[in-house]
């Protein structure tokens, strides 16, 4: 394999841009996981649903992909809280294996509903942004990815602001730190969970709309992004917002630089290697976070 400076530069640029999206997807998972101590194994499938919504609005409805955020984010918020109310809330006190299996079951349902009704076809939305490219020396910067990066940063910042500066955010953080104490000071933990789940899901709506100009949609697309989200959240430290953002970039870079150095899809092994290493040696993440 010929390895050049351009190739490396390209990998770095792509890695950072994709890493931004990884970060946004993971922030939602981190919020839910950190607050409820439940890993949503259907997180990737929520993203998949959002991507289908965005895809159909763009491909069939002729929407501008970025305008679809107005639909995808509220829709995912709604889907999130409905699924939470109906399935997750009743088992919030059950043993962890039951919670894991419930969300695994949800992911099977969502994935295969898509497979049954939308078929296994890989759909690509061709938008005005799809072929918008900039050149930095020999390095191509895809406009759609740049917009996605900036949009992700903005969305993550808004989420951060909500968590830090609003009453809702303060309640969510209090509930995640100490459920009992939060109840004592009059926080309705149950509705806090609902909100956290809604917000965590809504961030996937935003991510989906940002991704649609450059990423394909398929029933199994959630599988990959779900796994990436677990990796990023664990690496960044559970509940550590900034850590999650940095970890998103690290994994983005790992994937893209790995792909330019290693043959085939072996870069993915590198990603999982990092994941396993962190889980074994620093389960609180590289930047610190909540104890498990």
């Amino acid at each position: 394999m010929v390895f050049s400076f351009e190739l490396f530069g390209q990998a770095v640029v792509t890695g950072i841009l994709i890493g931004g999206i990884f970060a946004l997807i993971s922030v939602g998972l981190s919020l839910i996981w950190g607050v409820m101590r439940i890993i949503n194994f259907a997180h990737g499938e929520f993203l998949m649903i959002a991507m289908y919504i965005a895809y159909f609005l763009v491909a069939k409805g002729g929407w501008d992909p970025y305008l679809t955020i107005l639909i995808t984010a509220p829709a995912l918020f709604l889907i999130g809280i409905i699924i939470f109310q109906v399935t997750i809330r009743p088992i919030i006190k059950d043993p962890p294996i039951n919670q894991i299996m419930l969300t695994v079951g949800l992911s099977l349902i969502l994935q295969n509903l898509a497979l049954v009704f939308l078929k296994a076809d890989v759909l690509t939305a061709n938008t005005a942004y799809t072929r918008m490219n900039f050149y930095l020396g020999g390095v191509v910067v895809r406009g759609s990815q740049l917009i996605a990066f900036v949009g992700s940063a903005l969305a993550a910042f808004i989420l951060y602001w909500i968590l830090q500066k609003t009453d809702i955010g303060r309640a969510i953080r209090a509930a995640s730190q100490n459920r009992d104490a939060a109840t004592l000071v009059g926080i309705n933990v149950r509705s806090t969970y609902l909100l956290a789940f809604g917000l965590g899901s809504a961030s996937l709506g935003v991510a989906a709309s940002l991704m649609i100009p450059f990423y394909y949609t398929s029933p199994t697309v959630g599988l990959f992004f779900g796994l990436i989200a677990y990796v990023v959240v664990v690496l960044g430290g559970l509940g550590n917002f900034i850590g999650t953002l940095v970890a998103g970039l690290i994994i983005g870079l790992t994937e893209s630089i790995g792909a330019s150095l290693l043959p085939g899809s072996l870069a993915r092994v590198l990603t999982f290697g990092i994941f396993i290493f962190v889980l074994l040696l620093r389960p609180q993440g590289i930047f610190g976070g909540k104890q498990k």
């Binding site: 796994l227 043959p263 899809s265 999982f272 994941f275 396993i276 889980l279 074994l280 498990k292």
Partner: peptide, 26 residues
């Protein structure tokens, strides 16, 4: 040995199996 338990053990095992998919594929 490193005290991995609960959902974290589930995650490690998922990661190992997924890594195996990509290793064998290549």
């Amino acid at each position: 040995r490193y005290g991995v338990k609960g959902p974290y053990f589930a995650l490690v095992t998922i990661a190992l199996a997924e890594a195996a998919v990509y290793i064998v594929t290549n």
